[in-house]
Design a protein around this nucleic acid. Structure first.
Lengths: 251, 251
DNA sequence: CGTAGTGTTGAGTCAAGTCAATGGTTGTGG
DNA sequence: CCACAACCATTGACTTGACTCAACACTACG
């Protein structure tokens, strides 16, 4: 259950150490956090807007997304969570959740007590620093999403999201080479980019026709990674991943 | 210079205490932070994307905005900073700034040493908690902006931004009753909402024609606050300001 | 009193949305 | 193993909200 190989919190630890190394003791404290593991189906809600959560959930495997719904019922996806992401750092220090989190795929979720984690953050400076950095990087990604949705056209938006996803997956050691399994429908991609599913479909076909990507089912292959980055006005700076952090440095 | 009345960091302290009270000692530690005060003109850059900052700046007076520029030169405004906002909590724990901050008006800016502040955050749990909460609320506002720009039409976007601005100002005790001085041009408002200045102008006139607001120069008066909130699909939940925190509770 | 920055308005265009139908794939139960 | 259902992807025809371009008005300030 706590083999270092498949420990449910291993990706969390990896993420914490993306921005600064932890002392051995802190590393141990993280891996020794008591947790409860749950297996949940795709579509399950992890958090609902308005909830007062007592647990902090970590995605041990699987994908999820943050979302908000407007008054007239349309949905905006705000972030995609990948394995290792702490789903509600948000809620760890705020009492009421301001958005919902829903599973994109079936997933294993580790629940950690809010108080335990809070205490760790406040008493261990290195862990505190790491968590703050995580939070700040998440904010940085949100800023980039505002730019994406506010000032880029449809083709740029889609290309940008694909690039971001690829780089984030790679930094967590989760990519096949030059491609990945997109865990979302075109409608979800539309809700992430402020478009409609019909238009997303046309744009994807356009990117394919122009030789930037190729697709089969939901698998995206980067036929021309350089050109895709250009098409998406993508620069990885905002992800704050230093170059030597990435594994194979494929991208 | 350090009268409690006009201490440059007084609004910062107020903001820190919005989400949880500080012990007297911590309160004192904040107000006793060594700082250097600068007077800067409108348009000055406080931070440029790519900078490696060593100071953490606090707006003692005046307004600023965060922005990013896309490859083709268009600008997206990501947040408006009001007096008391710490301009670069971001940079306090990350080494390279991922966006720029520019003054909207002339302002007094207090520079605090990055290390001093870091240490305070990591050694004083109440201050650490407050800073994390601040960061999380900023992220929550960013999420709402993604929704605003991604899923609302022009009229809703403008109405929403006006509501947000009013409530934030009030929570800091900075509003005249049922109106405020908008410190931005219509072009800047356009860059904040992902629109063009021409269209912003038409929408503002529309809101005025429908009796939701009235304007003279840059002063916005809320002729029908209730209707404006509805028009903007606005709910203050995402600001995480508990009701008793607001002063007059005008809104 | 000229200049520069804003704000305002109209006319024409276009990127993206809407509506609606058709195809494909997967899974399930008979 | 087949048939049906459900969900998702694809495509075409038409509409529209917001953009572009361009001119003109107002205000502030040196």
């Amino acid at each position: 259950m706590t083999t270092s190989q498949d420990h449910p919190l291993q990706y969390l630890l990896r993420q914490l150490e993306l921005y600064s190394d932890l002392p051995d003791q802190d590393r141990r404290l993280v891996l020794e956090l008591p947790y409860r593991l749950r297996r949940l189906d795709a579509g399950s809600y992890l958090v609902r807007e308005g909830d007062k959560p007592t647990q902090c959930m970590v995605l041990a495997s699987g994908y999820a997304y943050r979302q908000k719904v407007t008054g007239d019922g349309s949905r905006q996806i705000l972030a995609v969570c990948i394995p290792g992401d702490a789903v509600d750092l948000q809620n760890m220090f705020l009492d009421v959740s301001d958005h919902s989190v829903q599973l994109l795929t079936a997933a294993n979720v580790a629940d950690v007590s809010r108080e335990t984690l809070q205490e760790l953050v406040l008493s261990r400076p290195a862990i505190g620093t790491a968590i703050i950095q995580l939070t700040l990087v998440e904010a940085s990604i949100l800023r980039e999403w505002v730019v994406n949705v506010g000032r880029r056209d449809a083709r740029e938006r889609i290309a940008h999201v694909l690039c971001e996803f690829a780089v984030r997956l790679e930094s967590r050691g989760l990519t096949a080479d030059h491609g990945f399994e997109l865990p979302m429908t075109q409608e979800q991609l539309a809700d992430a980019t402020g478009l409609t599913s019909v238009h997303v479909n046309r744009v994807l076909k356009g990117l394919e026709a122009d030789g930037l990507i190729s697709r089969q089912r939901r698998h995206i292959h980067f036929a021309d990674w350089r050109a895709l980055q250009d098409a998406g006005d993508f620069s990885r700076r905002y992800l704050h991943i230093s170059d030597h952090d990435t594994l194979a440095q494929t991208y």
